[in-house]
Amino acid sequence: MSILDEIAQGVIEGEATKVADLTKKALDTGVPPLDIINNGLVLGMGKVGEMFKTGEMFLPEVIFSGDALYAGVGLVKPLLTDGSMPSKGTAVIGTIKGDLHDIGKNLVGMMLESSGFTVVNLGADVSPESFVQAAKDNNADIIGCSAMLTTTMILMPDVIKLLESEGLRNKVKVMIGGAPLSPEYAAKIGADSYAPDSTTAVEVANELV
């Protein structure tokens, strides 16, 4: 098994320490950083995604794999010149104001990161103004807005209105998710997309960028 295969395997097994050690070893032996990312770390995570989808892997294992992926990426990233770190796009995510439920949203963040997005996670109880400001600051491609409560989802249209008034609506796509939401609600408030779960969120984000 090549060292890149071993790294990929380490990601699949969710062994962060092992992946970090192997990544260091690969760097020391002169494997090009981008090769480590694309043919080791990301390759492994891709397999994880497939196995999660087919029910061979469960959520907690996927999260460990995500951690392992980042244990490797963290070591390689500083060695890459600016802009050469592959990213599908930047997503600013958060749970809307008044709502403290953010576990599902964090899962979405992790899955997006694992699939190659740059994620800025604003946490919970995020005002529409903060969403839009963070999108500006980070030159975001996507805003991902989450709500668990019927009493808080009603603030989501404000994010979109604010993007419009700031002249950013054409640049930033908006995807929404959370238990009380639906594709119909997304359409009604003028969001670009809705995702019912973290796996679909990745598919949706891939389509949006």
């Binding site: 999660f52 029910g55 469960f58 959520l59 907690p60 599902g104 899962l107 779960d197 973290s198 796996t199």
Partner: peptide, 8 residues
């Protein structure tokens, strides 16, 4: 409980 295949 959490459904570990979907997180639901």
């Amino acid at each position: 409980i959490t459904d570990m295949q979907s997180g639901n």
